[in-house]
Structures are given as structure tokens and as C-alpha cells.
């Protein structure tokens, strides 16, 4: 019994440490964004590290609904590792909110958070957004339809109902 417990603990610790080991062994790329809160239309600096010299990362700004391509960053050699430091301008029409900056190659990806606030300067064209019409209608949502998922849900529902019936009748 004691042996079983010890081997369980060892397995648990080993599993828990696996990601750390992987990260140390391969040097996972990391990025940082400065500043972390920026107004639309302003500049950010994306700094990458723990990369291989010669790699090129595609930098995108990802919001809740869409993602904007900011540009590319080429990794230059710095000591043992490669790194980059590139400046991008956040498009002035980016809606305020929480975003992630993603730096990705085909194999690797690194992300950092950034919050975008309203543009500093007021619109000069003096055109405010039209006030939305209030409506009681449901929103027309593009709900993802996946047959595999629906089948999974139906099976889970049936298993749940069957198991439930069996337990209730025991």
C-alpha cells in the first residue's frame, strides 16, 4: 500500500513537472508588449526572446471577434538565443477592449495581453456612430454547428439518462 502511494506521488510530481522540463529543454519563445495599455492609433513595442536566430514571426493582434495582422518580426542573434524588438502601430479604428498579441511561426507561438483604449484624439470628421436601434429580437448568431459535437452531446445525454434510470430504480 505504501509503495503504491509513493509511486503514485512520484508519477503525479513527474506529470506536473513535465511542462517545465519541456520549456527548459526547448527554450519556448516568449514575448512582451510595451505598454500593456495603449490607445488605438498609438504604437506598441513587441519584444521577443528565447528564439532561434533566423526565424521570422508573424505578429497578429487578436480580439474577441477578429484578428488583425500587424506585421513580421525577424529574429536576430543575441548571445546564445535569438530575439527581436519591433514597433507596430495599432490601427486607429480598433475597438477598445482586451486583446492578445500573438507571435507565431509554423511551429511555435507566443502570446501576451494588451488592452486597447479609445483613440486619444477625437474624430475630426465629426461623425459619431449611429445610435443603435433598441430591439427585442434575438441576435442572429453564427452558432458553430458540429455534427461530431452534437453526436457527443446526444450520447452523453443518453448515457446520463440511462445511468440515472438505473440508479433511480435500484
Amino acid at each position: 500500500m505504501k509503495k503504491q502511494l509513493i509511486s503514485f506521488l512520484i508519477l503525479f510530481v513527474a506529470l506536473a513537472l513535465t511542462p517545465v522540463g519541456l520549456a527548459l529543454a526547448h527554450g519556448e519563445p516568449v514575448i512582451a508588449v510595451q505598454p500593456t495599455i495603449v490607445a488605438a492609433g498609438e504604437e506598441i513595442i513587441v519584444i521577443g526572446a528565447e528564439m532561434e536566430a533566423g526565424e521570422a514571426f508573424v505578429i497578429t493582434l487578436e480580439g474577441m471577434t477578429d484578428s488583425i495582422l500587424l506585421g513580421e518580426a525577424a529574429v536576430v542573434e543575441e548571445g546564445d538565443d535569438g530575439s527581436f524588438e519591433v514597433t507596430f502601430t495599432i490601427p486607429a479604428d480598433t475597438p477598445p477592449g482586451s486583446y492578445t498579441i500573438r507571435a507565431a511561426t509554423d511551429e511555435e507561438t507566443a502570446v501576451a495581453d494588451v488592452t486597447i483604449t479609445a483613440p486619444v484624439e477625437a474624430h475630426t470628421d465629426n461623425q459619431s456612430a449611429p445610435a443603435p436601434e433598441p430591439s427585442a429580437a434575438p441576435l442572429d448568431l453564427a452558432r458553430p454547428q458540429s455534427t461530431a459535437q452534437n453526436v457527443g452531446v446526444i450520447i452523453t445525454a443518453l448515457v446520463s439518462l440511462g445511468l440515472g434510470l438505473w440508479l433511480v430504480r435500484r
Binding site: 445610435a131 452531446v153 446526444i154 439518462l161 440515472g164 434510470l165 438505473w166 440508479l167 433511480v168
Partner: peptide, 30 residues
């Protein structure tokens, strides 16, 4: 066991309803 049994029956019904009538969402509020 009975409690869990009735709980699972409820869960099965909830899954079926979720599939047939997903939770509603309206237009942004004014």
C-alpha cells in the same frame, strides 16, 4: 444513489434542451 440518479436524469434533459434550444441572447441593450 437515488439523488445522483435523479440528478443524472435532469442532466440528460438539460443536454437535450441545450441541443434543441440553445441559451438565448438578444441584441446589445439600449
Amino acid at each position: 444513489k437515488r439523488m445522483v440518479g435523479y440528478g443524472l436524469l435532469t442532466f440528460g434533459a438539460v443536454l437535450a434542451l441545450s441541443l434543441l434550444f440553445p441559451a438565448p441572447l438578444g441584441q446589445p441593450g439600449v
